[in-house]
Simulated assay, not measured.
Amino acid sequence: MTTKTTPTGGGALVLHSGGQDSAVCLAWALDRFETVETVGFDYGQRHEVEMTARMAVREALLDAFPRWRDRLGQDHRVDLSGYGAIAESALTADREIEWRDGSLPSTFVPGRNLVFFTVAGAIAWRRGLTTLVGGMCETDYSGYPDCRRDTLDATQTMLRLGLDMPLGIETPLMHLDKAETWALADAIGGERLVELIRTETHSCYRGDRSHLHAWGYGCGDCPACDLREKGWARWAQGQADT
Rank of each mutant, 00 (worst) to 15 (best):
Arg112Asp: 00
Pro223Gln: 03
Glu34Val: 04
Lys4Val: 09
Ser22Val: 03
Gly44Asp: 02
Gly19Cys: 02
Met174Thr: 07
Glu229His: 13
Gly40Asn: 00
Thr201Lys: 01
Tyr144Trp: 09
Leu129Ser: 04
Val57Leu: 07
Gly82Thr: 00
Lys230Asn: 14
Asp140Val: 13
Leu167Phe: 11
Gly162Met: 07
Asp164Lys: 15
Ala179Ile: 00
Ala122Phe: 05
Leu61Phe: 00
Asp146Tyr: 07
Ala187His: 03
Ser103Leu: 15
Gly18Pro: 15
Arg100Val: 08
Ser203Arg: 10
Lys230Glu: 11
Val36Ala: 10
Ala56Lys: 14
Met174Asn: 03
Leu26Ile: 00
Thr8Lys: 04
Gln239Glu: 15
Pro145Phe: 14
Pro223Thr: 06
Tyr141Val: 05
Glu98Phe: 03
Asp164Val: 11
His213Ile: 12
Glu50Gln: 05
Gly162Ala: 11
Ala214Thr: 11
Leu30Gly: 07
Pro66Cys: 12
Leu159Phe: 13
Ala224His: 02
Thr3Trp: 09
Val49Phe: 10
Leu193Ala: 07
His202Met: 04
Ser142Lys: 05
Pro7Ile: 07
Asp177Arg: 01
Glu180Thr: 02
Val133Ile: 13
Val115Gly: 12
Arg228Phe: 02
Leu80His: 07
Val39Asp: 02
Tyr141Arg: 13
Ala224Leu: 02
Glu48Phe: 13
Trp232Lys: 05
Gly19Glu: 03
Tyr83Val: 07
Asp140Ile: 09
Thr92Glu: 08
Thr118Cys: 14
Thr52Ile: 06
Leu212Ile: 09
Arg160Cys: 08
Val39Ser: 07
Gly121Tyr: 13
Cys225His: 01
Thr92Gly: 09
Cys219Ala: 06
Asp208Gln: 14
Glu200Asn: 12
Ala53His: 10
Ile197Gly: 08
Ser22Lys: 06
Arg228His: 08
Gly11Pro: 04
Ile86Ala: 08
Leu196Asn: 12
Ala214Glu: 15
Gln45Pro: 05
Pro145Tyr: 15
Glu191Pro: 01
Leu212Ala: 12
Thr181Met: 13
Glu50Trp: 01
Ala29Met: 01
Phe117Ile: 14
Thr107Cys: 14
Gly9Trp: 04
Leu159Trp: 10
Met51Gly: 13
Tyr217Gly: 05
Glu34Cys: 10
Thr52Ser: 01
Gly40Pro: 04
Thr52Asn: 03
Ala187Trp: 09
Arg192Ala: 15
Pro166Leu: 00
Glu191Val: 12
Ile86Leu: 13
Cys25Phe: 03
Thr52Gly: 12
Glu98Tyr: 04
Gly135Ile: 06
Ala233Pro: 05
Ala122Gln: 07
Asp153Gly: 02
Thr130Leu: 06
Thr6Pro: 05
Leu30Pro: 13
Arg198Met: 02
Arg209Cys: 04
Glu170His: 04
Arg206Glu: 11
Val119His: 07
Ala179Pro: 03
Asp94His: 14
Cys25Ser: 10
Arg192Trp: 15
Ala56Cys: 07
Gly102Asn: 14
Arg198Leu: 01
Ala60Asn: 05
Arg209Phe: 04
Leu173Trp: 03
Arg160Lys: 11
Glu170Asn: 03
Asp94Val: 14
Trp68Ile: 05
Ala233Lys: 10
Leu26Val: 01
Tyr217Ile: 00
Glu48Gly: 11
Leu132Ala: 04
Asp150Phe: 10
Pro166Phe: 02
